[in-house]
Design a protein around this nucleic acid. Sequence first.
DNA 1: ATTGGCACTCACTCGCCCCGAGTGCCAGGA
DNA 2: TCCTGGCACTCGGGGCGAGTGAGTGCCAAT
Lengths: 380, 380
Amino acid sequence: MIRPLQEREVVGMREDPRPGDTVFGESRLGEPRLADSRVEDPRLDRRRLEVLRAIVQDYVSTQEPVGSKALVERHNLGVSPATIRNDMAALEEEGYIHQPHTSAGRVPTDKGYRLFVDRLSSVKPLSSAERSAIHAFLGGAVDLDDVISRTVRLLAQITRQVAVVQYPSLSRSAVRHVELVAITPSRIMLVLITDTGRVEQRFVETIPVSETTVADLRARLNALIVGHRLSEVPSRVDDFADQFPHEDRPAIDSLVAALLEVIVEQREERVVLGGTANLTRFRQDFPDTIGPVLEALEEQMVLLKLLGESTGPSTLTVRIGHETGYEGLSATSVVTSGYGRDGDTVAQLGVLGPTRMDYPGTMGAVSAVARYVGRILDQA
Amino acid sequence: MIRPLQEREVVGMREDPRPGDTVFGESRLGEPRLADSRVEDPRLDRRRLEVLRAIVQDYVSTQEPVGSKALVERHNLGVSPATIRNDMAALEEEGYIHQPHTSAGRVPTDKGYRLFVDRLSSVKPLSSAERSAIHAFLGGAVDLDDVISRTVRLLAQITRQVAVVQYPSLSRSAVRHVELVAITPSRIMLVLITDTGRVEQRFVETIPVSETTVADLRARLNALIVGHRLSEVPSRVDDFADQFPHEDRPAIDSLVAALLEVIVEQREERVVLGGTANLTRFRQDFPDTIGPVLEALEEQMVLLKLLGESTGPSTLTVRIGHETGYEGLSATSVVTSGYGRDGDTVAQLGVLGPTRMDYPGTMGAVSAVARYVGRILDQA
DNA sequence: ATTGGCACTCACTCGCCCCGAGTGCCAGGA
DNA sequence: TCCTGGCACTCGGGGCGAGTGAGTGCCAAT
């Protein structure tokens, strides 16, 4: 997913432009000039990419459109501003950068950021001080709720952006224990404990059942499903009631129904937010977008979509601007990573910020935090 | 707390200005002119208050400083603008209103809002449509978490402001049931269920104990504390271990310790937020304050302080601007109410918005929601 | 006590000009 | 073929000044 810039890759890419590849793609159709030039001098492409990288870096740090003169001053590119201007014109024609208005500097487009992330940057590792701070802070957590709430605060603080952490998904966890407690003869409390530390509980009203029946049920139910994935539970308990005498059936049916309900509960996909105050640091840049962004953040569904499909643990995903798929988030990017125990992804966490963010740093932080959270879960 | 404007009250207040009373107070010290004039014609005060009320109402709806001419046009005060100007000058001298700059209209001060809330307005009851919507929405909740999350969304939607709801306090709840479950001989799960519907759980590592001991413990523990306030639990379990044979003491001690820990757990004071996106509706007015406000909202401690000490259920509390006690919230007001079951306050809920808010409407909404939530808890 | 009249204040808007950063193009040189 | 210096052009933004109008405070009259 993340490849540092390497000469070999650039060359290879040039020689083998696969259709559909967004990187330096599309030139097949419309820009013969550039296509030709690339064949003739590899250095030209190199420099052009270097210019794009410089533009992204400068824009991210200054937050102002960057011009050709400033660029040669800040980076030793070894050519004159005029040359850079030519490169910029080409980059603009290909859609990687954009001019807010004539006589202004250039700003990267979503496509430009995409290229930057894919090819022109690498994940920046955290300093050892930061790593040990993460370790110390997360290590103090006492239970799952605490791990999650600490994580979200930590991410928000490190990246100074909005942090989003998803609770370990029930469906991807396994059953550690099921407990049945008869509060009264006709009121049973069902407690489900997963190997990711989640504890879900629910009351069940039934016809009265005896203590011994409850004990029997508890033993058989545990024997049946402990150690199995929650996703397998429905099929395993399918004919569970058949083992019991007829008069207990209604009670068992409602118990099983409650169990299944807990498992598919929509609340299973809980998401925790933190650092929304960081949004205001950007209001100078896009003052009109903070409203839509806050609205999107209040929608659990949107957040879940942003966190996206689970990928492998510690696989970083970056969604830039329109790639998020939401109108209101066209000026924001989302960096996410799966996290989990035993190399198994149980949920996602990530960070949301302006498209003009420090991608290498943010990616480094998200990836490091995801790794540590996974480690913490392993210990539990 | 909330008194509608009544002639009798105004007259009584005039005749008996208690020291320390903020309403129309302070004039004892510095404004003999006004003090005298009040004695001479009660109608004067009446109109002056009417002017203040009109200013607050107009300012809340237009969000712009209101001038004397506009005031006589929109309200039939029966006098000329010049007269109103005199009243305004007096009100300003007493600190109830304020002029952003010369040749601008007047804006209420915090003190002005305070007087408005205390004497010039009454809680506006919700429409029956709104009431039935609340009923339907809250009635669909399945458990405590759901009640809380629905409540916060509901409040945010009705008032179009930021909603804050506190979980029922553990210390003010009573024990409904304690369950001990031996997951393994040396690992016991402790589950505490309160009459407010909260379920707290915790694992305890002990020396191995037998099933029968656990059952015995469970029975005695329940007998000892069920029905009692959590705040009484510590003293009640103080010498609990004495009843048991010596070899079980270590296990019982760790169990009791875990129980106490659950009760005093700082997490007991959980607060849920909603509707932060509504903050952006005011950014035209105080664009610089939204940052500090978001920061304050992220601080659990600040929120808890804002929700404040418990008062009786359905007793409304209004904190205006600086009264919140936080620098960053000097332009916001907080309207809160206790809620609970059986007329017993178990927690607070409320709304946070700009000082220039619709107090009667907001107070009506908060009070209605608090009442309904209490009713829902009663049913559980 | 209230009112109409009057002079005064001052934020805000608009048009104007100027400045300078930044561009695109072109012709000459390596 | 690519790079470079030069040059004309564009245009956003800041600064300035006049005009406008809402709103005020004061005063003399009722």
